[in-house]
Design a protein around this nucleic acid. Structure first.
Lengths: 210, 210
DNA sequence: GTCTATAGGTAGATAGAC
DNA sequence: GTCTATCTACCTATAGAC
């Protein structure tokens, strides 16, 4: 019955939801949850405000949809921290992947940072439990490398924070990074230079003296 | 005339302004500029909303007053990066001072991070020029150490970003830090451990192999 | 599915009594 | 200097025609 007509409708539906989410990411990142107005999301996505409410029942539902999607793609760079790799290669790959992701998904990255800085109001207990478990798994890998004498005994949790923070900085704090690096905008070369400096410094900091 | 009566009035004035600023820091940090309501600042500072408008002409004026005050106390930790010190001692002191400041002024720290992440809308050209100059001065100190062979040739600007980011993380991203460190809240000992790990790792990363 | 119109509430800011 | 009452504008969310 409706089956034949369902596909094109479904396509429009998916397209509109994508447009709303995309606009939402940009605006929530810039204004935070409370500062964002649905009307602005509607305008940026090219839909009337009422249609936004047709697809999402509230501002909160748009926001939490974005957060959920974000967390799903979050662990990606960490896959490089795996026991069958040598630490030097693993950290180099991780740093590069993390900076790449951050650069290509600036708005998402900032939205996540905003959400955390403003108190993680919309991170569920499950989300936070997930963060703990993912961290635990990769802490274990590092502990393995330390036990095998492949790395100096550096606290793995604080090491992860250093890596997370250093790579996150370039997109989240872009205006400050621009001033600190004396450039008018961050270019691909700046990210390469960042990756190289972070990797070299950290690797000398955690590997046995050669 | 009014001279005799001026002093106690002046005291009340100063006290009220302090209360407004203090409440403003907390709430702006949690909700961002757009998300903050003057009524909430008024309530938190124990004054009627109209009185807030008696002392400040707009929401923006409260916000920029806070930002200006923040920037003034910002350079403090950097004073340790000075040419007459040895690099090892200088960085150790800087990291400790920065983490101390961050821990004791969490709300300000978060407010500043929020402001930057949301696009630095209220940082003036002068503010940003100030950041550039302060960075330049300390970059020169590091270049001096490198030229003197006291440090490996690490890019000073990216090194500063690593230090800035790593120390900032613990208060700005506290909810994530809590999960990553598997604790229920950050204690003084966590900050000490952070300072030690960051300093040890960075120092091995920038000093000649011994 | 789309859109206009609007209800119902709350924001920033001000007027004016005390 | 303090505070109540209020203006105007705008917000979230919905009703209902098409």
């Amino acid at each position: 019955m409706a089956r034949a007509a369902r596909d094109p409708e479904e396509r429009i539906r998916e397209r509109n939801i994508r447009l709303i989410i995309k606009a939402g990411i940009e605006i929530f990142a810039r204004k935070g949850f409370d500062g964002t107005r649905i009307a602005e999301i509607a305008e940026a996505s090219g839909l009337p405000k009422a249609n936004v409410y047709y697809y999402f029942s509230s501002k909160e539902e748009i926001y939490t949809t974005i957060i959920a999607h974000l967390l799903a793609s979050w662990d990606n760079a960490l896959k490089y921290i795996s026991p069958e790799r040598e630490p030097a290669e693993a950290f180099r790959l991780y740093i590069k992947a993390k900076l790449d992701y951050t650069r290509k998904n600036m708005a998402e990255s900032r939205l996540f940072a905003s959400e955390i800085i403003q108190g993680a109001r919309f991170l569920t207990k499950k989300d936070r439990e997930h963060i703990r478990q993912v961290t635990d798994r990769h802490v274990a890998v590092i502990e393995g490398w330390i036990a095998a004498g492949k790395m100096l005994p550096v606290d793995p949790r604080h090491l992860f924070i250093m890596l997370w923070a250093s790579t996150q900085f370039y997109s989240d704090f872009e205006p400050v990074a621009i001033d600190a690096l004396k450039t008018s905008r961050l270019k691909a070369g700046d990210y390469d230079k960042a990756a190289a400096t972070i990797a070299e410094t950290i690797l000398r900091g955690i590997l046995p003296c050669s």
